[in-house]
């Protein structure tokens, strides 16, 4: 039972979130929709976005999974502070992330000289896009996975160890399969976040068709010159996001 009056603010809230989406749909020039979203620049941007987001998700998995395990399964001094700091990109304005990345990987950044010696130029490259996306997306994976790890608890791991399984075997055969739903939904969230990344990319990576101009940057740029195309691409991004979230929900349920 919930009080009846709750429905009114709930409806207002839902409308507030859904109306802008409806407005995009209403604003789309359907007669030109297909032409607009299949222009060379749009296709380049979509393909770049998908490629970089997939790569960023992979990096999140590679480094975020161990991080979540360490946070969930161990305790050491300063862990609480570390957790808060690791989750910072969740609440940080993305442009701040971009500036921070610039001062890390940029030419004059902390690692800039070392990278230059190695002949690696990060700024203005697709690598920069992937770095920016990984930076903002990783916390999503870590949070989601750490939650799953805590929910799953350690009882199965203890049993597995008592049966003679070494830590790596336990991790591979017990821990990972048990938190697979969390891992999948975390990855999907990270992918979605990477797909929508804008601020850090534009600050850090620049904007060049096919190299660093992802879908959100393309939309931002078209907004000034070709509003119809910007709206059409926005809808594409909305649809991709809806698909991704729908997929995450279904995977979460079927695995959980």
């Amino acid at each position: 039972m919930i009080p009846r009056w709750l429905y009114a603010p709930a409806a207002v809230g839902a409308a507030f979130l859904l109306l802008p989406l409806a407005a995009i749909v209403a604003r789309v020039e359907w007669s030109e929709f297909f032409t607009l979203i299949t222009s060379e620049a749009s296709k380049d941007a979509l393909w770049l976005s998908l490629r970089t987001s997939a790569m960023a998700t992979l990096l999140c998995l590679l480094f975020g999974t161990p991080m979540a395990v360490v946070l969930a399964r161990t305790s050491f001094p300063g862990q609480g502070v570390l957790r808060s700091l690791v989750l910072l990109p969740l609440v940080l304005p993305p442009v701040v992330g971009g500036v921070a990345l610039l001062y890390t990987f940029g030419r004059r950044g902390l690692l800039g000289h070392e990278l230059e010696v190695l002949g690696i130029q990060v700024a203005f490259s697709t690598t920069a896009v992937v770095l920016a996306q990984t930076f903002v997306a990783m916390p999503f994976l870590v949070v989601s996975l750490e939650g799953s790890l805590r929910t799953a608890g350690q009882r199965y791991e203890v049993v597995a160890a008592s049966l003679g399984a070494a830590p790596t075997t336990v991790f591979r055969r017990i821990t990972l399969p048990l938190v697979l739903p969390g891992l999948v939904s975390g990855s999907v969230l990270a992918f979605a976040r990477a797909l929508g990344e804008f601020g850090a990319t534009i600050t850090f990576a620049g904007s060049l068709q096919g190299v660093t101009r992802t879908l959100p940057l393309e939309i931002y740029q078209l907004r000034e010159t070709d509003v119809d195309a910007a709206v059409a691409l926005s809808l594409v991004l909305v649809v991709v996001a809806v698909l991704v979230i729908g997929f995450a929900g279904r995977q979460g349920r079927s695995l959980g």
Partner: peptide
């Protein structure tokens, strides 16, 4: 053949002041 086509003058300046460009 620019490495980046920025959205505004400010963005171009930012890339130059930071030394990236």
């Amino acid at each position: 053949s620019p490495v980046s086509e920025e959205q505004s003058v400010t963005d171009v300046l930012a890339k130059v002041t930071s030394g990236e460009a």
